[in-house]
Amino acid sequence: MDFANVKEVTYRVRRFDPDKDRAPHWEEYRIPYAPGMTVLDGLWLVKELHAPTLAWRSSCRMGVCGSCGMLINGSPRLGCNTQICELETTTVAVGPLPNFNIIKDLVPDLMPMLETHRQLLPFIVRDDHEEMEKPSGEFWQSPEELEHYLQFSYCIKCGCCMAACPTCATDPVYSGPMPLAQAHRYNSDSRDNGFTHRRQVLEGERGPWRCHFAGECSRVCPKGVDPAKAIQLMKRELVADYFKLREQRCPARLAETPKGVARREGIPEAPAPTVR
């Protein structure tokens, strides 16, 4: 569709106010269109011109914070990262992400997802507690070891994968693609030693076993992360562990402080830590 002559677009917005409405409903608004407008820009115009009470989440406006995940013309996407013209229609249907409860209008309740994420220990777990509490240096990691988890670390927790997952749609027990992919991200990190802790959850019915490998999570991810792949790799790792075939590794050791080297001229000192 040629957007050169388009002056107006229609927004169909799914509205729901738990204090007033018994069920969500659609409302339509006409707003002026300008080249380069994103779906999020359009929502601001809707709010300014027609519906001042319209609620959604957004922050960075550049596809980094993961706040503005919403259902745009039937597909979970980031509002800030979606140009209206790429939808190839002058009607933009915007709803809250499916598979989440709605707090208000386009605001999904992400807390269950984030709680599951928390339970899967999305951070480096090591046995050297003193080093973890008071870090004295950096851990060795080769570029090859970095490649094992790098793409999974691009996740911004927007929830689009959870909204697209057919298993999440019917099974409230299933952890979902985001928490599982992030658990795999840390299990694959050579600095981490938390596999046995995460395994407590992953071996059970909240683990990756209900994944049908539909692959929708990977298709909709705005950051190009492949959660479906992470889940299959996680299954392989857990099965290998069951048969005692998983490679036992020592977490990466601390890099020694370089000796016999001098600081180059002109490199400023790092600023003092803001948190002590």
Binding site: E203, G207, K235, L238, V239, Y242, F243
Partner: peptide
């Protein structure tokens, strides 16, 4: 029996 074992035997 945990799902990891059941799923493994399902595949086998």
């Amino acid at each position: 029996i945990r799902d990891a074992k059941l799923w493994t035997w399902h595949v086998l």
